[in-house]
Simulated assay, not measured.
Amino acid sequence: MLITAQFDSGNIDILEAADSSNIRLSIRKDNQSDFYQWFHFKLYGEAGVEHVMHIENAGQSAYPDGWKDYCAVASYDRDVWFRVPTEFDGKTLTIRHELDQESCYYAYFTPYSYERHQDLIQWAQQSTLCEHVLLGQTLDGRDMNLLVIGEPSEEKQKIWVTARQHPGESMAEWFIEGLLGRLLDDEDGAVRKLLQNNVFYVVPNMNPDGSVRGHLRTNAVGVNLNREWEQPSLAQSPEVYHVLKAMDQTGVDMYLDIHGDENLPYNFVAGAEGVPSFNEAMDALGNRFKAALVAITPEFQTEFGYDVDAPGEANMTVASNAVAERFQCLAFTLEMPFKDNANLPDADFGWSANRSQQLGADVISAIYAVADDLRA
């Protein structure tokens, strides 16, 4: 028996792996940070035998409530990821799985590899609707990629979408893949209409270093990028620095920042109600966006989510708040679950890569519902 995490986004430490009925594991912390929760490893074992894996430091992870009612994902082919029996006793997360084949991968959520990210960028670049822009590089020397969809002009509205500031929230890039699949479909009527008056600026992965390193929440030097938007720096947060610089050059009329939430088993958005410039018109526009998305898909809801900030009390280091205030625009953080959508559960797959992709495609219709009034 052997366990390894020596690959893209791998994360696990092996404490003991001599007995398949008592495999003792530990999740590594993000570099220069106390955050940890993402895991991704490969088990070589014996087919037909149940393997019991104990992640012993789960109770001290960044979001221990995230383990309640959670099931890990597993895959034999790294394509189809399914849920496996998982339990949490307040201290240890235990995964039980009888192998059908000789080796199997396990992860916190369906991984989105850096190789797939690079393929996504190059695939999008093939479209005549898309321009690929290199914004700069990360601390580990990886590219910060921006995809511009539509023909830019001063008169057109600018809609920005960023994803995966927190690298362990891999569902965010699956969402982007679905969104891009629709945006680059030149036979989609809603998209054709949208691109007459709007240009989309999409950053599929804000944190490629953390993604490759197997981090949950931070970049190469342990910085939480979604707390850097008030004053980003090239030394600590070049990812945010480069994106914000590009936003300043283009302007922003609508902004979506795509994330995953460890605790809540729902899809929801968090708005910018607490920023100084928030007003009734922005509130009404945001409510229209949410109502449209509720009407489009049962995967989205508005009953459960984060507490709404009181007026003037928003955390201005957070992307959606900072952008909403800086550009006086509609801005949301969109959250998806690591667990399942409790309103539409799927015992075999839970919330999944495929469902994330579909939500990304569906969001285009909600944007379409409010696009004509973004500048009003």
Rank of each mutant, 00 (worst) to 15 (best):
L129S: 04
M171N: 12
N197R: 03
D143M: 07
E173D: 14
N198H: 13
C130F: 05
E230I: 04
K193T: 14
L194I: 12
L234P: 06
R227M: 13
M144S: 11
T250R: 08
V243S: 05
E131D: 14
N205Q: 14
G141W: 07
Q137H: 15
M254D: 02
V191Y: 09
L146F: 12
C130Q: 06
L179F: 15
P232G: 08
L179S: 07
D188L: 02
G181F: 08
H215K: 03
G178H: 10
S237G: 06
L244I: 12
D253F: 06
L139R: 10
E151D: 14
N219V: 05
Q231P: 00
R164L: 02
A190E: 15
I149H: 12
R213E: 11
N198I: 00
N197F: 03
L135I: 03
H166R: 04
G189S: 09
R192V: 07
T218Y: 13
E230N: 07
A163G: 00
E151P: 00
E154K: 11
L134E: 15
K158P: 00
D253L: 01
S233M: 10
A235L: 13
S127E: 06
R142Q: 13
V199R: 05
T218Q: 10
M254C: 02
G141P: 00
D185N: 15
T162V: 01
P232M: 12
E131V: 10
N198Q: 09
S211H: 05
L234Q: 13
V203Q: 11
S237I: 11
L184W: 03
A235C: 00
S153N: 01
G251M: 06
A220T: 06
T218G: 07
I176M: 13
E228T: 13
K158G: 02
S153W: 01
T250L: 05
Q126E: 15
K156P: 09
Q157I: 03
L194S: 10
L146A: 09
W160A: 04
L184M: 02
S127G: 03
L195E: 02
E154W: 09
W160S: 01
E155F: 01
T218V: 10
W174M: 06
E177D: 14
L195C: 04
D140E: 14
N197Q: 03
N198Y: 09
N145L: 06
N224A: 03
Q231L: 08
D188M: 05
S233W: 11
R182F: 07
E173M: 13
F175I: 09
L216Q: 12
E187S: 07
T250W: 11
M171P: 08
V161C: 02
W174Y: 15
R213K: 10
V202G: 06
L147Q: 04
H132Y: 13
R182P: 06
E155S: 04
F175D: 08
R217C: 08
G251Q: 05
E228R: 10
N198M: 04
Q249K: 14
L179D: 11
R217N: 12
A220V: 05
V161K: 04
V212F: 11
M206N: 01
A235M: 12
E177I: 00
M171T: 12
A235P: 00
K156Y: 10
N205M: 15
E173L: 09
E155R: 03
W174E: 09
P204G: 09
V203D: 10
Y201V: 02
N224M: 01
H215Q: 02
T162E: 02
